[in-house]
Each structure stands twice: as structure tokens, then as C-alpha cells.
Simulated assay, not measured.
Amino acid sequence: MTPDATAPDEPEVAESRLLNGRVRLLQPVRGYRAGMDAALLAAAVNARAGDRVFEAGCGVGGALMQIAARRPGVHLTGLERDTAAAELARRNARLNEVAERSLIVTGDVVGGLGPLASPRFDWAISNPPFFDDEATLRAPAPGKRGAWIADDGLAAWTGLLLKAAKDGGRILMIHRADRLADILSLLGEKAGSFTILPIQPFADQPAKRVLVQAVRTGRAPLRLLPPLILHDRSDAKHTLEAEAILRGDKALEL
């Protein structure tokens, strides 16, 4: 990876290749970088051409750019409070030639949707920060703090997704497995028809992540899917299924 030229006051960035080279992503050399969670979130967005997808906390656009590559004709909107990350997301949209169907807005989750509030979206997705309280973990590096610490709590993120999704629209989150009860309770105020995909590091270990899909105003029974296993005990980095998802050869059907 060759560092991208930057102005002196901009973070140093480098280009990563995702989905077997189909996506080019500029990311900071130091700080938070889009990884497995963004890839899984994008793989689970089974949007159709013409659908409008909103992501709360889009960062540099790691998930949005993968959705764009997987789902031609989908319109993408991202909300990101970090101005440098938001600008990188705009650059990534241009780099991947999807700027004409992408909109990146600088703003905070607590600030709400503002001018984005109408019309509401077919999909409202997020990979929220995993922790509400810095006392619960070793302090993250300054460049990673915004990605790890939800200053306003999980309720602010679920509340924004509920406001963003239209009736019948889908809400999709990836988060810590031990917050599943909280996610179901918070989203259950206005959404239902839950589908849950546990994500296990190994087949013999508990899930550490969950993908949760809900339908705004949905009433269907909850569905708990067989888990996605990321690694096995061979020398391979990922299981065949996980590798196919990362290459873009497979989607997650929730």
C-alpha cells in the first residue's frame, strides 16, 4: 500500500483494496480502519437498485463503498461526525466512481437527520461504537476513540436508525453479542420481524458479534439463524464461507 499524498494538516492515508480488489479505500495509516465488521454489515444489505441506504457513523465509507460495489443502482447516504473521516468518505466515493449516487453529511448522531429526514430510507444501518463508558476498557488511542466509545449511548444510535427507516424499511446493525438484549429492547419500540445472525470466531467458541436486522413496524416472529463461523483450526486465515464474503463472492441472506 502506498500512502496517498496529503496536505500537512491532513491525516496520512493509505489505499486498501477490498472485495478482491473491486473497492479502493483510502484510510488513515494510524487510527481506526474499516475491517471485518464493515464487510459483514455491507454483505447483509440486500438492497435493490433504486433503494436508499443510510448509514449512521459511516467513517471513511468502508461499508458504503462495499455496498456500492455489491449493489449497483443503490443510493448511499452517510452521516459522520469526524470531519476528516467524512472528507475521506467523499474522496472514496469519487475514487470508486459512485459519487453521483453518494451523499456524505458531516453531523452527529444526537443532532438527528436534519435535512435528511424526508423522505425516509429503505435501509438504515450502523456499526455503532461498541462501548458507552471509557471505564469499561483500556483507553483507546485518540484516533480510535470515536469508533470505540459511544458518548451518547446505544439508545442514541438505535433511535436515529428508527427515525431514518421508513415504515416497512429495514434496520441493520452489527454489534457486541452481549448487547443483544439491549438492541432488541431499544429497536422493539417501533420495529419487529427481527432476524439475528450470531458471528462466532470459532465453532467451539461463543458468538462475540451479532448482526441484527429489524423491520420498522414489522410484526413477524423473531428468527435466529445458524451462526457464521469466521475461523477454523487449519492454517487458513478464514473459513471458506467467511473468505467468500470478504471477496464479495457471497452475500449474507438475512
Rank of each mutant, 00 (worst) to 15 (best):
residue 190 K to V: 14
residue 219 R to Q: 14
residue 48 R to I: 05
residue 136 T to R: 15
residue 90 R to K: 14
residue 207 A to F: 14
residue 57 G to D: 00
residue 97 E to R: 15
residue 119 P to M: 12
residue 28 P to Q: 05
residue 204 D to N: 06
residue 144 K to L: 14
residue 39 A to F: 01
residue 130 F to Y: 09
residue 159 G to Q: 06
residue 184 L to I: 08
residue 78 G to D: 00
residue 211 L to Q: 04
residue 88 L to P: 00
residue 197 L to H: 04
residue 55 E to Q: 01
residue 77 T to V: 10
residue 64 L to Q: 06
residue 99 A to R: 05
residue 172 L to S: 02
residue 223 R to D: 14
residue 192 G to P: 09
residue 201 P to I: 10
residue 210 V to P: 11
residue 119 P to T: 05
residue 31 G to F: 00
residue 51 D to F: 01
residue 28 P to D: 06
residue 252 L to M: 13
residue 230 L to E: 03
residue 121 F to A: 00
residue 29 V to P: 09
residue 110 V to E: 04
residue 236 A to S: 10
residue 102 S to Q: 08
residue 102 S to P: 10
residue 248 G to Y: 03
residue 114 G to M: 09
residue 57 G to N: 02
residue 68 A to L: 03
residue 9 D to R: 13
residue 196 I to A: 06
residue 129 P to K: 10
residue 190 K to Q: 15
residue 4 D to G: 11
residue 77 T to H: 04
residue 160 L to G: 03
residue 28 P to Y: 05
residue 151 D to F: 12
residue 141 A to I: 12
residue 25 L to H: 11
residue 199 I to N: 04
residue 231 H to Q: 15
residue 73 G to E: 13
residue 31 G to E: 01
residue 227 P to H: 04
residue 233 R to L: 15
residue 238 H to D: 08
residue 55 E to M: 03
residue 142 P to R: 03
residue 122 D to T: 03
residue 45 V to S: 05
residue 249 D to L: 10
residue 120 R to C: 11
residue 154 L to V: 09
residue 164 A to P: 02
residue 225 L to W: 08
residue 144 K to M: 13
residue 237 K to V: 07
residue 144 K to W: 14
residue 58 C to Q: 02
residue 235 D to S: 12
residue 89 A to D: 02
residue 211 L to N: 05
residue 183 I to S: 07
residue 236 A to E: 02
residue 122 D to I: 10
residue 233 R to T: 14
residue 22 R to W: 07
residue 86 A to F: 02
residue 154 L to N: 02
residue 115 P to M: 02
residue 58 C to T: 00
residue 235 D to Y: 08
residue 204 D to E: 06
residue 167 D to V: 14
residue 31 G to S: 03
residue 79 L to Q: 01
residue 4 D to R: 13
residue 201 P to A: 08
residue 104 I to A: 03
residue 204 D to Q: 04
residue 135 A to C: 13
residue 184 L to W: 01
residue 130 F to K: 01
residue 239 T to H: 00
residue 26 L to N: 10
residue 126 S to N: 03
residue 151 D to V: 06
residue 110 V to K: 04
residue 79 L to P: 00
residue 188 G to Y: 12
residue 154 L to F: 14
residue 36 M to W: 01
residue 117 A to K: 04
residue 65 M to C: 12
residue 184 L to T: 04
residue 79 L to E: 00
residue 145 R to W: 09
residue 160 L to P: 02
residue 217 T to K: 08
residue 86 A to I: 00
residue 123 W to R: 02
residue 174 I to F: 00
residue 243 E to Q: 06
residue 23 V to C: 07
residue 175 H to E: 11
residue 219 R to D: 11
residue 224 L to R: 13
residue 47 A to P: 05
residue 220 A to K: 09
residue 165 A to L: 09
residue 90 R to G: 00
residue 208 K to G: 10
residue 169 G to N: 06
residue 150 A to R: 03
residue 127 N to K: 08
residue 19 L to C: 12
residue 130 F to M: 03
residue 213 Q to T: 12
residue 170 R to I: 11
residue 153 G to E: 09
residue 179 R to W: 14
residue 73 G to T: 09
residue 103 L to I: 05
residue 34 A to C: 11
residue 206 P to M: 11
residue 230 L to V: 13
residue 75 H to D: 04
residue 13 V to S: 11
residue 60 V to Y: 08
residue 204 D to F: 01
residue 224 L to E: 11
residue 61 G to F: 01
